[in-house]
Design a protein around this nucleic acid. Structure first.
Length: 596
DNA sequence: GATAAGACTTGGAAAAATCTTC
DNA sequence: GAAGATTTTTCCAAGTCTTATC
């Protein structure tokens, strides 16, 4: 990029050099998917050129000591680095996790003989980090502006690749920072060091004719250069510090043509499933009473994947967290109750708990009872089938059908169905229509079990709002009394909402006007505010454990949302953020009559 | 055909950006 | 215009499924 400061626009001009800044509108072409012969042979591109990756900065020594055994000690650079990584996780839930502590302790022992975590006090390093954070926070406007400019220029340089005459956005062009590994749930490797990646470990992928990007790390060079046009990654490497065979890639961004086309294909496949679902359901239902246990298990597992939107559940390694999906369910994860009800309780992807009690078809209940018979709690429920068996069965039902298609189909189908319930929504405000949409999306999130942990702030925020609500209630009553007075006097009162707090937001001002009509106005306004606040609180409470983003990004066919917005005159910005609008740009021209 | 390797999608948490309210 | 709330984006972990290899 050079040291010289150039304006973004100028830079773009140089970089583009006559190329189009954006992809052509592939979705407007007649048959973008079929016409390309290359694609038939698995060729993703003809020309690929890019600028390489950005390496995270090296560790910078700060010479802040550690208090060990009550005494301040000086650390070697290696020790200091590890201790600094530890200090970064102070205050997070990891700090108190047994595995995280144990693994960090043994990691430290490789650099610090006999190191015991209990004897170490990281206060000074933590303070130093906090200082640095504040320094970053309180930079001058001039400095912030300068940094933004540099960021933008970096983004232009690394953030785009040249693909067949168009610039495509690159996703993760910055390599991951070395740090202590933080797995999800009870991950056996949490607290170990996720090591720095060096250029020698990277495989670069580009065209034979394209210039090889410069390796910006002095004294280093790329490990391998390949010209694979059957794949879409720019760099690949194996991050074996936590798990062997952990393949990582630098890929195109979600807004790139590649990902957009894959997205559209995904939803089209889900729509094909929709058209054939009756026949497919009939087919797996037939299996439920088969003489063969294997067949019964195939039918039963498919039923659960379809009905409960479970993931398929591949095998996992010993050194990963113990999580399961449908095929890896164990006897201990289900309880058969009366009246065909089955209680599921297991940890799924990301160790998120799936806890659901649901009435299933009688034959399913009977089959589950049969599969459990004579087994131990830790035995596999579906002991006679594998994920491959299940997907092989699905492939025979429909070309390209796999277990995850059911999740996409059921999610999009649910959204469409929920939105159709709204009818015309005439006379509703835009906000009400958006609320209606959000609720429809919420049903999808519930189906897919998209959860989030309740934020630390939540209880506090709730308490605050409740206090405010109480205060408003009293205020309204007082205003009504005030209104009854013959000659009301005008005055103000301040109420402290939070004890001992000096913050502006903790003060509620009660205004008592001097004229009757103004009092009436104030009463009405306050009542409106009260209702709004109350509704907000209810919504917060209802959604406190539901993550609404995942379904929007990955499961809902965007055309459903676009059509909804067009029919009901809701600006698309109210439903999709800027990145989502870019990701789904191919769906923006969807007709208002479109249905999933 | 079984297993390992490889490629790409999906996921929640945290950081950053933006909006709201006083 | 600052503080706090809310939304959006980034980060990277953790899934699914395909392809290569024996």
């Amino acid at each position: 990029m050079g040291d010289k400061k150039i304006k973004i626009d100028e830079y773009k001009e140089i970089r583009l050099g006559g190329f189009q800044a954006r992809s052509h509108n592939w979705w407007e072409e007649a048959n973008p998917e079929e016409s390309e012969e290359e694609e038939q042979q698995g060729q993703e591109w003809r020309y690929l050129e890019h600028h390489g990756v950005l390496f995270p900065p090296f560790y910078k020594r700060h010479n802040v000591g550690l208090i060990y055994n009550g005494k301040l000690i000086t650390l070697t650079e290696e020790q200091e680095e590890l201790c600094t990584y530890w200090a970064q996780s102070i205050g997070s839930p990891y700090e108190n996790k047994e595995i995280y502590r144990k693994n960090f302790e043994s990691l430290m022992q490789t650099k610090f003989e006999g190191f015991q975590l209990d004897k170490a006090d990281f206060t000074k390093i933590k303070e130093y980090l906090e200082q640095q954070r504040l320094l970053r926070l309180n930079k001058s406007d001039e400095q912030k502006k300068q940094e933004k400019l540099e960021r933008d220029q970096r983004e232009l340089f690394y953030g785009y690749a040249l693909v067949d005459g168009c610039l495509e956005r690159v996703g993760n062009y910055t390599l991951e920072q070395p740090t202590l590994f933080k797995g999800r749930g009870e991950h056996p490797k949490a607290g170990l060091l996720k090591a720095r990646i060096f250029p020698e470990e990277l495989t670069v992928n580009l065209s034979t004719q394209a210039p090889v990007p410069q390796c910006k790390l002095p004294g280093h060079s790329w490990g391998k250069i390949v010209h694979r046009n059957d794949v879409t990654w720019l760099f690949s490497y194996v991050d074996s510090s936590i798990r062997k065979d952990n393949h990582k890639y630098v890929q195109f961004a979600a807004t790139s043509r590649f990902k957009q086309m894959n997205d559209k294909r995904k939803y089209e496949k889900a729509r094909r499933l929709k058209n054939q679902i009756d026949q497919i359901r009939e087919n797996y239902t037939k299996k439920l009473q088969s003489d063969s246990i294997k067949e019964r298990q195939l039918g039963t597992a498919t039923y659960l994947i379809d009905k409960l939107a479970l993931r398929v559940g591949n095998e996992k390694d010993e050194d990963e967290a113990d999580t399961v999906g449908c095929c890896s369910l164990r006897v201990e994860h289900i309880k058969l109750k009366e009246d065909d009800v089955v209680a599921f309780d297991f940890l799924g992807k990301d160790s998120m708990r799936y806890n659901n009690e649901v009435k299933l078809a009688h034959q399913i209940w009977k089959n589950l009872k049969l599969f459990i018979k004579g087994k131990q709690p830790e035995d596999n429920l579906f002991s006679d089938i594998s994920v491959d068996d299940l997907n092989d069965f699905l492939k025979k039902q429909m070309e390209g059908l796999t277990a995850k298609v059911f999740r996409t189909y059921n999610a999009s189908f649910t959204l469409q169905q929920q939105l159709d319930l709204g009818g015309k929504l005439d006379g509703h405000s835009v906000q009400q229509k958006v609320d209606f949409y959000d609720n429809a999306n919420k049903q999808v999130a519930i189906l897919c079990n998209h959860q989030k942990t309740i934020s630390k702030q939540f209880e506090l925020t709730k308490k605050k709002i409740n206090t405010k609500l109480e205060c408003m209630k009293t205020y309204i009553q007082e205003l009504e009394q005030h209104y009854k007075k013959k000659n009301p006097n005008e005055y103000e009162e301040e109420v402290q909402l939070e004890e001992g707090s000096q913050k502006k937001n903790s003060i509620f001002i009660k205004k008592f006007p001097g004229q009757h009509d103004k009092i009436k106005q104030t009463i009405q306004k306050t009542q409106e505010k009260y209702q709004k606040e109350l509704k907000g609180l209810e919504k917060k409470e209802e959604n406190k454990e539901i993550a609404l983003g995942t379904s929007k990004t990955n499961y809902n066919d965007p055309r459903i949302s676009v059509a909804f917005c067009k029919v009901h005159d809701v600006p698309i910005e109210r439903v999709f953020s800027k990145t989502l609008r870019n990701k789904f740009i191919w769906a923006m021209a969807t007709d208002s009559n479109w249905k999933f």
